[in-house]
Design a protein around this nucleic acid. Structure first.
Length: 200
DNA sequence: TGCACGATAATCT
DNA sequence: GATTATCGTGCAA
């Protein structure tokens, strides 16, 4: 599969549009242990003025990457055990992001399997914490420009723009703003997280 | 104190 | 097989 780096001008600078756009694109990390990549199949948008968004209360040391120009990585540590990542989703200075929740492993499946132990191949990166573990994403990647030359980037194939069956549901694991339907997923993907009825 | 989580166990169909 | 309950873990507010 031939992947090329995405250009920032191709990325929507609106969280909902970006969340939809990223479905079917690829996340690539050329790490010390090898290259891993996967097709993004599940995302969630976190908006300006959204009480569930990490950026809601303004920039802090932790969340400042959310305020970078769209297309940068925001990596954070949660629940004492896992990392999760967002793609920043607005103009510089505006805090919003798209959480990457699941991807279908493409390259480096053996490496992902080692990191994740016993998971089934399709489920190696099913869930935001699993995704980061399988890919080998950690704090060192926070703030990286995913559109710039480097080892961590967003890729697309020739069929960028092909229509895909994208589903929409409520976001997972929230108490605030739980009713908003800001989760997007590739219908029929075997790698989705979340309850069955959310993936209809 | 409360999480943008995940694994295991318990409790269903 | 599928959904629901519980709990550990470290850090920011």
């Amino acid at each position: 599969m031939r992947l090329r780096r995405i250009r920032r001008a191709e990325l929507p600078s609106d969280p909902v549009e970006l969340a939809r756009f990223l479905i079917g694109t690829f996340l690539v990390l050329e790490g010390d242990e090898g290259r891993v990549s996967g097709r993004i199949v599940e995302t969630e948008a976190y908006l300006v003025g959204d009480a569930a968004a990490h950026s809601f209360n303004g920039p802090t040391k932790r969340n400042r990457s959310l305020f970078l120009e769209h297309g940068h990585a925001y990596v954070y540590f949660v629940y004492g055990n896992w990392y999760c990542m967002n793609v920043s989703a607005e103009a510089e200075g505006i805090g919003a992001g798209v959480l990457l929740r699941a991807l279908e492993p493409i390259e480096g499946i053996e490496l992902m399997r080692r990191r994740r132990r016993h998971a089934k191949p399709t489920l190696l990166a099913s869930g935001p914490g699993c995704l980061a573990t399988a890919m080998g994403i950690d704090r060192r990647l926070d703030g990286i420009d995913l559109c710039a030359p480097g080892k961590f980037w967003l890729g697309v194939t020739k069929d960028l723009g092909m229509r895909m069956p994208i589903g929409n549901s409520t976001r997972i694991g929230l108490t605030k703003e739980a009713h908003r339907k800001l989760r997007f997923y590739l219908r029929g993907s075997p790698s989705l997280s979340g309850a069955r009825k959310l993936n209809a």
